[in-house]
Design a protein around this nucleic acid. Sequence first.
DNA 1: TTGTATGCGTTATCAT
DNA 2: ATGATAACGCATACAA
Lengths: 347, 347
Amino acid sequence: MVNRKRVTSQDVADAAGVSRTTVSLVLNNVLDAQISEGTRQKVVSVARKLGYVPDAAARALVSGRAQIIGLVLIRRPYHIASDGFLTQILDGLLEDAHRSGLRLLFDIIEPEHQKEAYLNLVRSKHIDGIILSGPRFDDEALDALEKDGIPLVLIGQLPGSNICSVDIDNFNTSRQAVEHLICLGHSRIACITNASPAYTAAADRLAGYAQALKDAGLPYDEELVRFGDFNMGSGYKQMQSLFESAANFSAVFVASDEVAIGAKAAIFERKLNIPQDIALVGFDDLPIARYLEPPLTTISVPAIKIARQASSMLINTLRGEEVKERRVILEAPLTIRQSCGAHLRQN
Amino acid sequence: MVNRKRVTSQDVADAAGVSRTTVSLVLNNVLDAQISEGTRQKVVSVARKLGYVPDAAARALVSGRAQIIGLVLIRRPYHIASDGFLTQILDGLLEDAHRSGLRLLFDIIEPEHQKEAYLNLVRSKHIDGIILSGPRFDDEALDALEKDGIPLVLIGQLPGSNICSVDIDNFNTSRQAVEHLICLGHSRIACITNASPAYTAAADRLAGYAQALKDAGLPYDEELVRFGDFNMGSGYKQMQSLFESAANFSAVFVASDEVAIGAKAAIFERKLNIPQDIALVGFDDLPIARYLEPPLTTISVPAIKIARQASSMLINTLRGEEVKERRVILEAPLTIRQSCGAHLRQN
DNA sequence: TTGTATGCGTTATCAT
DNA sequence: ATGATAACGCATACAA
């Protein structure tokens, strides 16, 4: 007895012997207008029996709200195929969105299409608001969006803008990670970034590395710096490049666990041991970090919490509430495991 | 000079000195109606200057197409926080969707809400079609959807249904993985599934394990079987449980790389070596598999290819084309690396 | 307490 | 070659 044709509110109204208005009032739980309990019951039961579900497009058209939030990344598809950070963000976002009756549209935008792609997505009103993860310095469209009044929250930061954002302190956490290495006696410390320095997070993490060196009176040596590209393959390649450069180093700070996993494989391939021959510190504390061999010392980025914070800010904005704290920075402690030998020290 | 108010086709029409119809005709490249080159140029340039983007809701309402496809998983949020398979699916799906001008809505549905959640998503016409990854046996709503005429493609299989699907042969690949272990001389082989046997893939993989044992004349011992739950934590826990059972075994087949990573950590924690003390075979060949220590022998599931195939089938269905091959099975070879010692053998 | 009428922005069917 | 007009399904101000 399943209906083939679409069921509209008119059908429900007819079957219940009321008007479309009443149906709408009942189903949307409008508080102002009072509906007799009998009518309400009837409408609800008829609607259920008919399997009525409001048409999203019609509702969006009249209400101006699509009930969808967008998560967008400035990346290429192959960057996300193994993105352990993304899944955590999705986890956090989805829970909150569901609780608010919102759906999640996921999209990636290739760096060169930034401008048009944003505008299409937002101006088409496909989505009510947007969470953008991993902003780049060259993101021209971002401020335009903000000015357009589109609810927008950044996961990450864009210096000089007033956009809502939630992030960790990339600079100081990186510095702390490298300081840890320095404390353990390393003075030749290589660095592989998480991504191109066009990404603000990558630039900050690299700066933190440089600062730690400087604070310790250690020279910054370009020979020891490589740029990762989000995924394990890039870590593997850049680590090889480090070995091939013949520069000597006893530790590597990799500003992304994902990239660090590739680097680690390249180290083992050389028959070198971690941490005995080379100490390794990552960044992110992906779920896998603690299960790696050896368990990875890394900066614990509270990804799910970040996602929750971002969605909460976005949802508040959507509700027209004022977000007082426009730039949230969450704690990201260094989690010491066994990839840099700290656990072996006897103090 | 950016417009604050929404720009509608009426605005474009006014500014270009034509009617809304003409604007629509031009911007949608309607072939039938001929538009003078001058008019076309003018409309296009005016539209661009004004930053006009058609309203998705209005378009969806009248056309009946939301231009969005849905990817849905029957899972809980914490299941996806480290889902390496999911990101690959997203990768493959997104590329195809973009090429067809489609957006991607991502959603997870908790097992107990299956029915209502599907119906809401689809009947609301939020999405034009749905790709469902990882079906369960208890998925009552699925056939209803199919009967409703909703374009639907399964990543995985649901026995006894006629739904379009793309999958690998879970049964035979699992069997092959276990046969590999048997060939290497193992006779006490434990198994940790990827998930609850309510998921069809989990049931099939377990059956493949059992079959390999049977073919080799080996007993199926319940003591050696555990059920994973998609993530690494479950693998870690079930591996511990295996050790605690005091049953002896020299190899483990884990029907998911994700779960295998947890199992591996539990093995190392016992100061046991892989493959010398315990051989390990995974399933999926996530990008990380080759970077693990030791590199993981596993079934190479072509996740991205699966996603592409699924999206291609869905998009064809959306176009009203007949999909001739309704059940596609892709190859998933066993990739032998170093986690079960095959590379050490001298033949 | 409930019904009527209007409009959201677009595409599609007619005319002209 | 282009314009007027009618839906699409819903929510809401207003009427009754």
